[in-house]
Amino acid sequence: MTTYKIQAVFIDRDGTIGGSDQVVYPGVFKLFSSAKQSIDKLKDAGVSIYSFTNQPGISRGEASINDFRDELLSFGFDKVYICPHQHEDRCSCRKPSPALLAQAAQDNDLDLKNCAVIGDRWTDMIAAKRAGCTKVLVKTGSGEKDLAKYLNNQFFDEWLEAAPDHIAEDLLDAVKWLLK
């Protein structure tokens, strides 16, 4: 359980706040039923909320960075941090790199040890671990599948590197745990 005042929560997009384990582009993306309530709970607690997401479709011209940014801001996020690159580009900002978290810390004067990451993929957990954030894996999106892989010792080293501090059923469960 956390024993500090959370400065900020970084939340992944696809599979965490809505959509599925696949990218769903702005305009057709749908929030999970409790996502708005979850965001409101964090805001009511005075916690800054940032989206951090890999969106390789931007570099392929399938959507614009502004489409994603505008959509995420409309959901209630304070700021948005997006890696627009494809995996094979080997950029420095794509999760599991903690670069987006470090940039947000610099932009917003955050101590990442007082921040949390909520996501549905192991790449979210690794980025959080490398940045020193609390790690919360949700079972929505790819979460259940990723969790099963690691619990079955398919990727034991990665489990040791980035085992979640909490495993939540969904975003609302994750937020409730963080705010306890």
Rank of each mutant, 00 (worst) to 15 (best):
F156V: 13
K95Y: 07
K176D: 15
H166W: 15
V138G: 01
E88I: 15
D165P: 05
P164W: 01
A104W: 01
S92K: 13
F155P: 00
W177F: 15
C115W: 02
D124Q: 09
R94S: 05
A105M: 12
D120Y: 01
D165W: 05
Q103F: 09
A168G: 11
L172P: 05
A127W: 07
Q154G: 13
T140I: 05
A174Y: 04
R121K: 15
A105K: 05
R90N: 15
A105Y: 06
C133W: 00
L151E: 13
L160N: 14
L112G: 02
E161V: 13
D120P: 03
L147Q: 12
D124H: 08
E144A: 15
C91P: 06
D124L: 09
G119I: 03
I167R: 02
K95I: 06
A116Y: 00
T140F: 03
L112N: 01
K135P: 00
L110G: 00
K149R: 13
G141C: 10
E144W: 07
T123H: 08
Y150P: 02
D107T: 13
G132W: 00
A116Q: 01
K113Q: 11
I118V: 15
L110R: 00
L151I: 05
A105C: 13
Y150S: 02
N108L: 10
A163E: 11
A104Y: 01
L179K: 06
E88P: 09
Q154W: 09
D107Y: 10
T123Y: 06
R94L: 08
L179E: 04
G143P: 02
N153C: 14
I126V: 14
L172G: 08
N153W: 07
C91M: 11
C115M: 04
P96S: 12
E158I: 08
E169P: 05
T134E: 00
D120G: 04
D170K: 11
A99T: 14
G143S: 04
R121E: 11
I118F: 03
L172A: 13
A168E: 07
I118D: 01
A168Y: 03
A116N: 03
C133H: 02
L101K: 05
K129A: 13
H87W: 14
L179F: 08
L171P: 01
A148F: 08
I118W: 00
E169S: 15
F155M: 07
D165S: 08
A105F: 08
F155K: 07
F156E: 14
N108K: 07
T123E: 10
E144G: 09
Q103I: 12
W159L: 06
G141W: 00
A162H: 02
V175Y: 01
S97Q: 10
L110M: 09
R90P: 02
A104R: 01
D89R: 10
T140H: 04
R121Y: 09
A99V: 11
K129P: 00
Y150N: 01
K135T: 03
K149F: 06
W122G: 01
D165F: 07
L137F: 05
N114T: 06
N114Q: 10
D157F: 12
T134K: 03
A116L: 04
L151W: 04
C91E: 09
